[in-house]
Design a protein around this nucleic acid. Structure first.
Lengths: 329, 329
DNA sequence: GAAATTACGTGAATCGTTTCATGTTTTGAT
DNA sequence: ATCAAAACATGAAACGATTCACGTAATTTC
């Protein structure tokens, strides 16, 4: 060993094994080398407990095998699930994940993108609702659920089809007066298409449909007010509600029950995301299931692959419906 | 700019600004430098859109401002919450988080520790149930909920006090026949103390208490069998159950209801963790709340601080009780 | 106003890898 | 036995940032 406290370097290994630096490098990188040499080097590596210095390697190779994943918040189970599957796919490809939880802070988010660029990550996967996020063209990037423009392809669930599916299921289950509830950013995101698909399906089926959209940050109580405004003699004007997320659906069910409505007997509710309690239990509510694993794998494939002019700028993955007790079926 | 495609280096900045490398370095690191020089350098940096290369910096400084966080699975909300607060605390200290989701795979976990060591992270925070995890003494480390020995201090909620608190609450609420349910690793972990505290409190209060412990991987149905074995004429032998996690508590409530028991009227159930739906809604069940944020901050403080011989090897943070509908209060 | 002192910018050396032109050894053919 | 070709180990240079011994210019002192 070189100095007791210091980590050994390739030079130490070379000295210990009695070979040259280049030979050690070859052994480490699996480049063919004479049998006897390889054995000597391997012995020395074990002997010194040598670990390669990823920073020196990254400096020389200009590759770090690290992908930055930027998302708003890890407490929200949907983001946790995405992070899990993205991590799994990255590890399978020999990459690591630098995870940046932005805490829904746009400034922090932009900082983290810069940090990622400085860190010379090999790519960025961003799940963000920040409309102004700027990602350098020099680094490979993929976004989830929001198109960022530039060279950044976007992976999303098929929000439009999901909206349609929600409407169809509600109508199949006997609903004749529908409502759509959404809370979120005012800006165009793929998420808006949930509404578009829902409304389009309602029109096609000639079913009346009311939309209530709140801006991010509005207290959730405004929905309760909205619902109460549509209540006459204990009867709600809607018998089917599509909520833009499972989280909102769960809140809505609570509000409805507070108002004396029975779910699903009086009103049926469908959410969007496909979340389950603890990841593997029941669904929180009847829901349109996002293909989280497929989305994660698609992101990873895109961020690692060479892009060409044929790379689509938006990839929509198919959704499905899952019964979760807040509809009749 | 040097070459069109290449990222500019400090050398390019120096040339553009007409100063030396050392001056550029000083400006970047906030070391005082003549006003006119600083301005020239700052202009050049903006002009070239220069970003420091974190790998060259890491190589030279032997510090990367990156902490590896190892946890079993990001889908489990408790781990997501811990990751969130750990990330927040790290960012506040100017550090980044390399997150390793091991998917409950011990081999992968050990690999990730090695990867972290290779990557020259400045420290490791590990939340693991692997009894044999080896962490090099050369890297600062902190564990959560399981003491790993060596130089790795452990941060945990006060599991023993939590167990006692659960027993006290159940008895306060009128229970006179208690049970403890646990599923998990056979090996000693801090988590075992939940049982110890619970049992000790029962003895102190002279309340009978039965423990049922299953090994990891056992199908959950075995608990149902256990409960049915304690059912005579529709009456369960227990009127209060403490489950080792909220997840198990939720499953247990489901089983009890399937068996025709009313919760909390016939049987009261308390879990452990303090999880809430979507992070900010209601508790899943009545529960002993782990101080996740305080634990995260303690971990970060420990992993960044210089250790000395006075550093405790185990830090237990206080827990609290939260009502979540599966007890009478 | 000259010498001494301070202030500060400079650039070569360094961190631990990888790469490639070079040199040495081995192999095989004649 | 000799030589050409192939095979393969060698180590200096390079990646980009930091540091520190050095040199130059500005300031102070008597």
């Amino acid at each position: 060993m070189a100095k007791p406290g210091e980590a050994p370097t390739m030079k130490d290994v070379a000295r210990e094994a009695g070979v040259s630096l280049g030979t050690v490098s070859k052994v480490i990188n699996g480049i063919p080398v004479g049998e006897s040499y390889r054995k000597k080097v391997e012995a020395a590596i074990k002997q010194l407990d040598y670990h390669i210095n990823a920073y020196a390697k990254g400096l020389k190779n200009n590759r770090t095998y690290t992908i930055a994943v930027i998302l708003p918040n890890m407490i929200n189970p949907f983001f946790g699930i995405m992070a899990h599957y993205i991590n799994r796919a990255l590890v399978r490809h020999g990459y690591r994940m630098l995870l940046c939880d932005t805490d829904y802070d746009y400034a922090k988010e932009q900082e983290m993108v810069q940090m990622a660029e400085q860190n010379k990550v090999d790519g960025i996967i961003a799940l963000t609702y920040n409309p102004d996020l700027k990602i350098s063209q020099n680094v490979r990037s993929v976004s989830i659920d929001r198109c960022l423009g530039g060279n950044t392809p976007c992976v999303a669930s098929d929000n439009y089809a999901g909206g349609r599916l929600a409407a169809q299921k509600l109508v199949e289950n006997g609903c004749r007066n529908l409502a759509f509830l959404r809370i979120g950013s005012a800006l165009a995101s793929e998420t808006n298409k949930r509404k578009d698909g829902f409304v389009a399906a309602c029109e096609a089926m000639q079913i009346p449909c009311v939309c209530k959209v709140l801006l991010d940050g509005t207290p959730i109580e405004e929905f309760e007010q909205f619902l109460r405004d549509n209540l006459t003699d204990g009867r709600l004007a809607f018998d089917g509600i599509f909520c833009v997320t499972d989280k909102l659906a769960v809140e809505t069910v609570k509000m409805l029950r507070r108002m004396g409505q029975r779910v699903p007997e009086d009103v049926q509710v469908i959410g969007y995301d496909g979340l389950r309690t603890f990841g593997d239990g029941d669904y929180y509510c009847s829901t349109i299931v996002q293909p989280a694993e497929a989305m994660a794998e698609t992101c990873v494939r895109l961020v690692l692959e060479e892009t060409d002019t044929n790379t689509p700028s938006l990839l929509c993955l198919p959704v499905s419906y899952a019964f979760g007790g807040t509809t009749k079926a």
